[in-house]
Amino acid sequence: MSLLTHSRQRTAPSNTPPSRGGGRRTGRRAGAARKQFTAWLFLVPTLLVFGLFAWWPIVRSLLLGFQRTNLVDPAVWVGLDNFRALLDDPLLGTAVGNTLLFVGLGILIGFPAPLVLAAVVTTVRRGAGIYRFLVYLPVVIPPVVAILLWKWFYDPGSGLFNNALGLIGLGPFSWLESPDTAMLSLVLEATWAGMGGAVLIYLAAMAGIPAELYEAAEVDGAGIRRRIRHVMLPQLRSVIGLLLLVQLIGTIQVFTEPYVFTGGGPENATLTVLLLIFRYAFQDGEYGQAAALSFLMVLALALLSAVYLRATRSWSRS
């Protein structure tokens, strides 16, 4: 056989079928690509709706902060003038101070109340469902209805609170008419109206605590206080930390109570940041200043959340 014939035989294509490994990999890649395309096909409408109704208003509000407009005529770019006008407004300091006062009173009164109430409800053996229903009932009442009900409670003449206190020789008190008690009155109603959800969360978390821990503490001679301090509270650290952050954000954004109860009075004693934003926009027509203050509030809340989560990361995991 010649050398040329031998070379042609060596380079002739083989009749053996190709390996199936490459085909399988190609098929898997094609299947994964189809699944990814289908997932994006279902996700894109949701992203468009979310962007239209969530992110675009945020972007639009930020743009309004640098404009002067009445939302009808063409907007005029004014740069940082809206922010300068905010800093020159003496009501801004009043609103910030009142908001911080509401936050402080809300944390002092409204934060431990759900935890204490949940601990009490867990000790109930008969009719526990009724107590859970009664605790959560204020949450399902419309906020405006609840505020109007409490407004009657606070009535200086025929109100429930003054009549009850009069039986023991106290009062009458001008709950909403006095700058000294108006903010406290708002905090009491807000605590009553909003603590039902926190109580249920605490009850669910307490149900997950192993009973062996309580039994071991009881065998060691721990009383109810030591069991709460050394067993229950350490097991609830992460829940407590999360609810504290949620309450901080919620109380900073308080609006309904001062708006319906007092309209910011008396003497601006209950004027909060959100109520001031409302006044800028819908009473004064200063939409640019309202948007600028809203943007500053968002930045403050984002910074507060970041600092809080970083400061409590190790505490909540320990």
Score class of each variant (00 low, 15 high):
residue 306 A to L: 07
residue 219 V to C: 11
residue 179 P to L: 03
residue 66 F to G: 11
residue 8 R to Y: 02
residue 277 I to R: 01
residue 111 F to Q: 12
residue 147 I to M: 10
residue 4 L to P: 00
residue 3 L to D: 09
residue 167 L to G: 02
residue 169 G to F: 03
residue 168 I to A: 07
residue 16 T to G: 02
residue 159 G to S: 06
residue 236 L to V: 04
residue 220 D to E: 14
residue 247 Q to G: 07
residue 93 G to Q: 13
residue 218 E to G: 10
residue 84 R to A: 15
residue 258 P to A: 08
residue 34 R to T: 04
residue 88 D to H: 14
residue 9 Q to F: 02
residue 57 P to I: 14
residue 73 D to H: 10
residue 92 L to T: 14
residue 314 S to C: 03
residue 2 S to I: 08
residue 249 I to Y: 00
residue 205 A to R: 03
residue 186 L to S: 09
residue 57 P to F: 15
residue 275 L to G: 07
residue 266 P to L: 05
residue 196 G to P: 13
residue 64 L to P: 07
residue 53 F to A: 11
residue 128 A to R: 13
residue 125 R to M: 12
residue 150 W to H: 07
residue 227 R to S: 14
residue 197 G to H: 06
residue 165 L to M: 09
residue 156 P to F: 03
residue 280 Y to V: 10
residue 186 L to I: 13
residue 107 I to K: 03
residue 103 V to I: 09
residue 142 P to T: 11
residue 50 F to N: 06
residue 220 D to G: 04
residue 213 L to M: 14
residue 243 L to S: 02
residue 200 L to W: 10
residue 183 M to F: 03
residue 218 E to I: 04
residue 67 Q to W: 13
residue 239 V to L: 03
residue 201 I to K: 08
residue 17 P to N: 04
residue 223 G to P: 14
residue 288 G to K: 02
residue 233 L to C: 00
residue 145 V to P: 06
residue 35 K to F: 15
residue 43 L to M: 13
residue 201 I to L: 15
residue 123 T to F: 09
residue 97 G to D: 04
residue 36 Q to Y: 12
residue 245 L to S: 01
residue 22 G to A: 08
residue 59 V to W: 15
residue 81 D to S: 11
residue 223 G to D: 14
residue 296 L to Q: 07
residue 60 R to W: 15
residue 192 W to R: 04
residue 25 R to F: 00
residue 63 L to Y: 11
residue 191 T to V: 14
residue 217 A to H: 10
residue 151 K to T: 07
